[in-house]
Simulated scan of single mutants.
Amino acid sequence: MTAAFLTQISETLASIEAEGMMKRERLITSPQGGRITVEHAGQQRENVVNLCANNYLGLADHPALIAVAKDSYDAHGFGMASVRFICGTQDIHRQLEQRLAAFLGKEDSILFAACFDANAAVFEPLLGPEDAIISDALNHASIIDGIRLCKARRYRYSNSDMDDLEAKLKEARNSGARHIMIATDGVFSMDGYLANLPDVTNLAQKYAALVMVDDCHATGFMGPQGRGMAAHYGVDVDILTGTFGKALGGAIGGYIAGPQAVIDLLRQRARPYLFSNSLPPAMVIAALAALDLVEAGDDLRWQLFENTKYWRDGLASLGFDLLDGEHPIVPVMLGDARLSQQMATKLFDHGVYVAGFFFPVVPKGAARIRTQMNAALTKTDLDFALDGFAKAGRAVGAIS
């Protein structure tokens, strides 16, 4: 490796540091949960309130999931040491795919190492140069990268702007596109905004387009029995992608669910599926158990949204600038990247674990603390965290 190359890399890192945009990781030395133990900069804090995990239903340390994962090792081993089509498919992999498809109301599903891989896989095998993809401007990076891998013509519409979406649909149809796919997040994770799926699906029907939805921040807690955004609105979409790494247990793994023919072709052509190891048996077994908990989890969903309302009302009463919404993602807008990091540091001093979000995760000038509610948090936890926000916010000048 040349000195010139390393110098360039070092200069890039120095620039990131100078702009106040360096991301630093902190060590969690306990199980993931509503209260955690965190080590950072030589300081260890116990019983910290965790407000930045995607652990919406609080299942990441659920005893039932831990128990079935432990038991799985005797029956199914530790790892698969192979991709699926060679010798990496156990009975439990197909059980999970079929169970998940039934839960989501689809004919079949296919598992991936992560939803990032699922979104990287879904477009290229299904669409070619004769086709078109129309993507929401705020879609997750994995959708953007997946579209880049596909040879279909690309269009982008302004976030949830149905007039712009229709204009792009007309443009794609008039250009002679064979098939058109609309791609959108079900929930836009930086803002907590819900996609307008009723209007998206109406326009798709009008222009004979397909609809693909990434439902990572909805499956498990939005809609009846947590079946996601399409169920929340009572509409149907063609293809769903999602993750087991958030509400469905919080481990790892992604999926695509849809019509049988689509899933069958993805098994033959989806490169992240063909060239990546199968999910570990323990994760598969635990995901099956998580689906049982989620399907019967109305009490968890009720608690999650009770917490969300209490938390949002509390932050607003303190004078913080919040984005509107109903989702358990509640962004606290600060604007400046340095301020978001200072706020996160002060909150940690007060026993509250959050992360500052800034460019390139969000646009420059739109830095924030993205707080996320989960069902494991108690009113005592939330009051403790609100007190921390009040003290930290005043210390850094975010509120008066």
Rank of each mutant, 00 (worst) to 15 (best):
T2Q: 14
A3H: 15
A4C: 09
T7W: 13
Q8Y: 14
T12E: 09
T12F: 10
E19K: 12
M22F: 13
K23W: 14
R24L: 15
Q32A: 14
G33M: 06
R35P: 02
H40L: 13
E46P: 00
V49H: 00
N50A: 09
N50F: 04
N50Q: 15
A53M: 12
N54C: 10
N54Q: 15
Y56V: 11
H62Y: 05
A64V: 13
A64E: 15
L65D: 01
A67I: 06
A75C: 10
A75N: 08
A75T: 14
G77Q: 07
F78C: 15
G79E: 15
V83S: 11
V83Q: 09
I86R: 09
C87E: 14
Q90R: 13
I92R: 05
I92M: 08
R94F: 15
Q98C: 08
L100F: 08
A102L: 08
F103H: 13
G105M: 07
K106I: 09
F112I: 07
C115M: 07
N119M: 04
A120K: 10
A121H: 03
L126Q: 13
P129V: 04
D131H: 02
I133A: 06
S135L: 15
A141F: 03
I144R: 07
I147F: 01
I147L: 09
R148N: 15
R148P: 06
L149W: 08
R154T: 11
N159C: 15
N159P: 14
S160G: 13
D161I: 03
D164G: 04
D164L: 04
K168G: 02
R173C: 14
R178I: 03
H179L: 10
M181I: 12
I182S: 01
T184I: 05
G186I: 04
G192D: 04
G192M: 01
G192R: 01
Y193Q: 15
Y193E: 09
N196K: 10
L197Q: 03
L197T: 02
N202L: 13
L203D: 05
L203H: 04
A208C: 13
V211A: 02
V213G: 02
V213R: 02
D214P: 12
T219A: 06
T219D: 05
G226Q: 01
M229F: 01
A231S: 11
A231M: 05
H232T: 09
I239S: 00
G242W: 07
A251Q: 10
A257L: 03
P259Y: 10
L265N: 13
S278C: 11
A282P: 01
M283T: 12
V284H: 02
A289R: 12
D292Q: 15
D292F: 03
L293F: 07
G297H: 01
G297P: 00
L300E: 07
L304T: 05
Y310N: 10
L315T: 00
L318M: 11
G319Y: 07
G319R: 06
F320L: 03
D321W: 06
L323M: 11
L323N: 10
E326Q: 11
V330Y: 00
V330G: 05
P331K: 01
A337L: 05
K346I: 04
V352Y: 02
V352D: 04
A355E: 10
A355D: 12
F357V: 05
F357Q: 12
R368D: 06
I369M: 06
M373P: 14
A375M: 00
K379I: 14
K379E: 12
D387E: 13
G388Y: 01
A392V: 06
V396A: 01
